[in-house]
């Protein structure tokens, strides 16, 4: 690996790690934020149908 290659790798990996880390920090430290951030873990209304 060349030195520019090493720099590209460090920059790429460093940037995405920093961005993900910042998001985790922001979600965990902002009051009530964990109630307001979602992925696909929703309780959709139709899931409440009786059996």
């Amino acid at each position: 690996m060349t030195t520019p290659g090493f720099i590209v790798m460090l920059l790429s990996v460093g940037t995405v790690t920093f961005l993900f880390g910042w998001c985790i920090y922001k979600v965990l430290t902002t009051p009530n934020e964990t109630d307001k951030v979602h992925g696909v873990e929703f309780m959709t209304p139709d899931m409440k149908e009786p059996d």
Binding site: V16, C23, V27, E33, V37
Partner: peptide, 9 residues
């Protein structure tokens, strides 16, 4: 932040 967190993950 939902979109950004999903994208950054």
């Amino acid at each position: 932040l939902s979109g950004l967190t999903a994208s950054s993950a």
